[in-house]
């Protein structure tokens, strides 16, 4: 069979089903550090299946937006995922300028998530939406700067070319990659509501960011939204993985390495969550701004590399 067909198939499967296992592994890691046995790593998958079997309960104060939003969130995340290079650094849709489409498709999804939260009229969800919007305004420019710098550096303006940076830029590339990975990792923690930005396990509505926005969702809607947020995590992990792993080492090795890095990243997140407390809401902004500083460093380094000093 054609190598590309196999990779397309494989990457779609990773995008769709890896989210459950990544979250499962994070939970297992946290349980390990806490000295507990923990739930099976298949539990997030079972939970989603269970939610698909359930009915939706819809508040009478909501409009069509609330009905429509979960589908939009899921569809946009899935679509955005198709642009991202996954195993073997293969993007299913590989076009020039893909990162712009990618960012704004994710943005569309987030926009619907925000207005759907506002649509319920709940004071909690409005608060969560305002926090989420606030973080996004910090994260988005930084994300853009990083991706634009990396892609400009790689030369041919496609997403999958970012894996060549270490190869093409040598030692200078390593420095850039380290900065970019730190920045993207902070973005991963922020966008996927992990400690120290958000606490995914809390029941305290007043402290939540992402979780509070979906308090009113149930059944299929909730399943789609949690699935989508898991996919987003895999997408961001894939970006990091592609930066640090030099690919082109053959199909089997490439795929294996990719999965291994995803699992490793999940373990790192789980360990981090066990070791530190959550930041105070006002300090979270400082933490997220660190991402912007690293993004600017990446941009300057890329400029130096491309145009000389």
């Amino acid at each position: 069979m054609d190598k590309n067909i196999i990779l397309t198939l494989f990457n779609t499967l990773i995008l769709l089903f890896m989210p459950f296992f990544v979250i499962g592994i994070i939970k297992k890691t946290k349980a390990f550090w806490a000295g507990r046995k923990g739930v099976s790593i298949f539990q997030p998958l079972f939970d989603t299946v269970r939610l698909f079997k359930k009915d939706r309960t819809i508040s009478s104060t909501t409009s069509w937006v609330f009905n429509f939003a979960p589908v939009v969130v899921f569809a946009t995340t899935l679509f955005a995922g198709l642009f991202v290079p996954m195993a073997n650094c293969y993007s299913i849709i590989n076009v020039v300028g893909a990162f712009v489409i990618f960012s704004y498709i994710l943005g569309l999804g987030k926009f619907f998530a925000l207005i759907s939260a506002m649509d319920t009229g709940s004071s909690f969800e409005g608060m969560g939406a305002s926090r989420e919007a606030c973080f996004t305004t910090i994260v988005e420019p930084a994300f853009f700067i990083i991706l634009a710098s990396l892609i400009a550096l790689s030369g041919n303006y496609t997403f999958s070319s970012i894996a060549n940076i270490i190869k093409s830029s040598g030692t200078f590339g390593i420095l850039i990659v380290i900065m970019a990975v730190i920045s993207l990792f902070i973005m991963l923690l922020t966008e996927c509501s992990r400690v120290p930005v958000d606490d995914p396990t809390t029941h305290l509505e007043l402290t939540m960011i992402h979780e509070v926005m979906i308090l009113d969702n149930s059944g299929v809607d909730l399943a789609l939204i949690t699935w989508a947020s898991g996919m987003k995590m895999v997408i961001l992990m894939a970006l990091i993985t592609n930066l640090i792993i030099p690919f082109g080492s053959g199909l089997k090795a490439g795929v294996g390495l990719f999965l291994l890095t995803l699992i490793l990243l999940a373990v790192v997140i789980g360990t981090l969550e066990s070791a530190i407390a959550r930041l105070r809401m006002s300090h979270v902004f400082e933490f997220v701004f660190v991402m912007s500083s690293f993004a600017l460093i990446v941009a300057s380094l890329a400029a130096v590399k491309m145009y000389g000093i």
Partner: peptide, 8 residues
């Protein structure tokens, strides 16, 4: 400590 997500 649970409220501030300090798991340990």
């Amino acid at each position: 400590l649970g409220d501030i997500a300090y798991l340990m």
